[in-house]
Every structure is written in structure tokens, then in C-alpha cells.
Amino acid sequence: MNVHVRSGEEGRAPFRSNRFFCVGNRWYFTTREGFDSGPFASRERAETGLKRFLHVVRLLPEEPKVH
């Protein structure tokens, strides 16, 4: 099993569920922060929406770390 470790998750393997879900023929994706986005007409469009969301998130400045 290939487990990707995200920043802040060193030393533990968190549970990750599927980001995509369907309600009444409409597709949604969910984020780690608990944000659900949709509806989309298909899973493929939800996947495209997630890719766009992640692209925008990567463009945001990082929050300063508090020690």
C-alpha cells in the first residue's frame, strides 16, 4: 500500500475516505476541512472541480506556523 504523508502527519497514517460522493444523481467532493462542493453532473466533473479547487488552494500563501 502506497501511503502519502502530508505535512503535519509525520509518523502516523490517517484514515482517508473517498473524497467523492453521490446524492440523487449529483456528485460532490469533500475537503479535509469538511467543505463539500457541488453538485456536479458527473463524477468526472466533480474530479475536475476538485483539481481546480486544489490548484487555487496551492496558490494561497501559507499560514504562519505557531510554535
Rank of each mutant, 00 (worst) to 15 (best):
N2W: 08
N2Q: 11
V3Y: 15
V3T: 14
H4W: 03
H4Q: 09
R6V: 00
R6I: 02
S7Q: 08
E10I: 03
E10H: 06
E10P: 02
G11Y: 03
G11I: 01
G11D: 08
R12P: 01
R12G: 02
A13L: 11
P14C: 06
F15V: 14
R16C: 08
R16K: 15
R16T: 07
S17L: 10
N18R: 13
N18C: 07
N18K: 07
N18P: 02
R19I: 01
R19F: 05
F21P: 00
F21M: 06
C22H: 07
V23E: 14
G24A: 15
G24T: 10
G24H: 15
N25T: 11
N25E: 14
W27D: 06
W27A: 11
W27T: 07
Y28G: 08
Y28F: 15
Y28M: 01
Y28N: 09
F29V: 04
T30Y: 00
R32V: 05
R32I: 02
E33M: 05
G34E: 04
G34M: 05
S37H: 07
S37E: 07
S37P: 00
G38L: 08
G38T: 07
P39I: 03
P39H: 10
P39K: 01
P39S: 11
P39C: 02
F40A: 09
F40H: 12
F40M: 04
F40K: 13
A41Y: 04
R43N: 12
R45T: 09
R45G: 00
R45Q: 13
A46V: 07
A46Q: 00
E47C: 08
E47A: 13
E47S: 07
E47F: 06
E47V: 12
T48I: 14
T48A: 13
T48D: 14
T48G: 06
L50V: 03
L50Q: 08
K51I: 04
K51L: 11
R52S: 13
R52A: 10
R52H: 06
R52M: 04
R52F: 03
F53G: 00
F53L: 09
F53P: 03
F53R: 08
L54N: 13
V56E: 13
V57N: 06
V57R: 15
V57C: 14
R58C: 09
R58Q: 12
R58A: 14
L60H: 13
L60E: 13
L60F: 12
L60C: 15
L60A: 15
L60V: 08
P61Y: 12
P61K: 12
P61Q: 11
E63Y: 05
P64E: 11
K65S: 12
V66C: 06
V66A: 10
V66Y: 01
H67S: 09
H67K: 11
